[in-house]
């Protein structure tokens, strides 16, 4: 009984997350995994991940880097016969993993955090965002992308100086409200 209750708590948590609502309607047909652009990089492909969530395998699901390979291409979503929106479901998994402090082995979690942070300026500052990301993940990867960065910088396509913040007060007010609605209070 205990195990079943635990399992239900996890699937309910996913169903309560925006994008996770329809998880119980999945028929496990595998169309999402078969369509997935990046499937060979996933330890547990989308269909399997859904099965694992419904089996209550919380630790394995949230510690896995699998969902972070989703490039949000929507192929699964336009093909899923049950209109589950697996892309949104993967976002829900990522959101829970991020919020609950799991540490899946992938720099993409850091990237998404950096991107979210960079929205606060009102407009994204590519160079600053990238620098920040490489500093907080792996600076050596930053050196490896230097040729690409230089190609862009020399063409004036990646300003090193930040643009003027636009309406960042408004943005912060909105994002703070979002955070309080989500009940994640002081955590980032």
């Amino acid at each position: 009984m205990y195990v079943i209750k635990e399992a239900k708590a996890f699937v309910d948590a996913v169903a309560n997350e925006p994008g996770g609502e329809k998880i119980n309607e999945c028929i496990q047909c595998g169309v999402c995994s078969g369509s997935c652009t990046t499937v060979e990089w996933w330890e547990y492909p989308p269909r399997k991940l859904i099965a694992m969530i419904r089996a209550g395998m919380k630790e394995q699901v949230l510690s896995s880097a699998s969902a972070f390979n989703c490039v949000t291409c929507y192929l699964c979503t336009v093909r899923c016969p049950r209109d589950i929106k697996p892309s949104a479901l993967m976002h829900a998994v990522m959101a829970i993993a991020e919020r609950e402090g799991y540490k899946p082995k992938t720099p993409t979690l850091t990237l998404f955090r950096t991107l979210r942070e960079s929205m606060k300026r009102g407009r994204i500052w590519d160079f600053g965002m990238a620098a920040r990301f490489y500093f907080s993940s792996n600076i050596f990867n930053g050196f490896k992308v230097m040729p690409v960065a230089l190609a862009l910088i020399s063409r004036g396509l990646m300003p090193i100086m930040p643009p003027k913040p636009i309406k960042s007060g408004e943005i912060k007010a909105i994002l703070n409200k979002v955070r309080s609605i989500q009940g994640t209070g002081g955590k980032r």
């Binding site: 925006p18 959101a95 919020r99 998404f112 991107l115 009102g122 407009r123 636009i166 943005i171 909105i174």
Partner: peptide, 23 residues
């Protein structure tokens, strides 16, 4: 006064992404 569409936040916070788009 357009601002970021919110897309960069979508993967880990859909409500934030929708709210910034809605702005």
């Amino acid at each position: 006064d357009w601002t970021c569409c919110g897309c960069p936040g979508e993967a880990i916070n859909e409500l934030a992404a929708v709210s910034l788009a809605a702005r």
